[in-house]
């Protein structure tokens, strides 16, 4: 199971396959690190399981990034991730793409 990873240089964060409450400490750390790059890239293409806590964390991150003027781009979002966000009414907040980019 992949851990959340950040590449300092381009602020890229890969969300783990199991992206749920018990494993969010590392995701949060990765997101905090991404905020120090000029632009952050979120890769949610591998997410197989997601819960409210994870989506809330992403929402908080987006708002924080916007406040700090850090651009955020999605490099991928799995169906699970997009379905979860939609059900919680967070699609717009997270600015998720309508479909997974090729």
């Amino acid at each position: 199971m992949g851990k959340a990873k950040t590449d300092k240089a381009d602020g890229r964060v890969a969300l783990p396959a199991d992206c749920r409450i018990a494993d969010l400490a590392t995701v949060k750390a990765a997101l905090e690190a991404a905020l120090s790059a000029p632009a952050a890239v979120l890769d949610g293409g591998m997410v197989e399981r997601v819960d409210t806590a994870a989506l809330q964390l992403l929402a908080v991150f987006r708002r924080e990034a916007a406040a700090r003027g850090v651009a955020v781009e999605w490099r991928g979002a799995s169906d699970v991730l997009r379905d979860g966000a939609a059900r919680l009414g967070l699609t717009q907040t997270l600015e998720l793409p309508a479909a997974t980019p090729a």
Partner: peptide, 10 residues
């Protein structure tokens, strides 16, 4: 169980 971090939310 709830004191164990990995059982948060289980």
């Amino acid at each position: 169980l709830r004191t164990m971090p990995e059982y948060k939310g289980v």
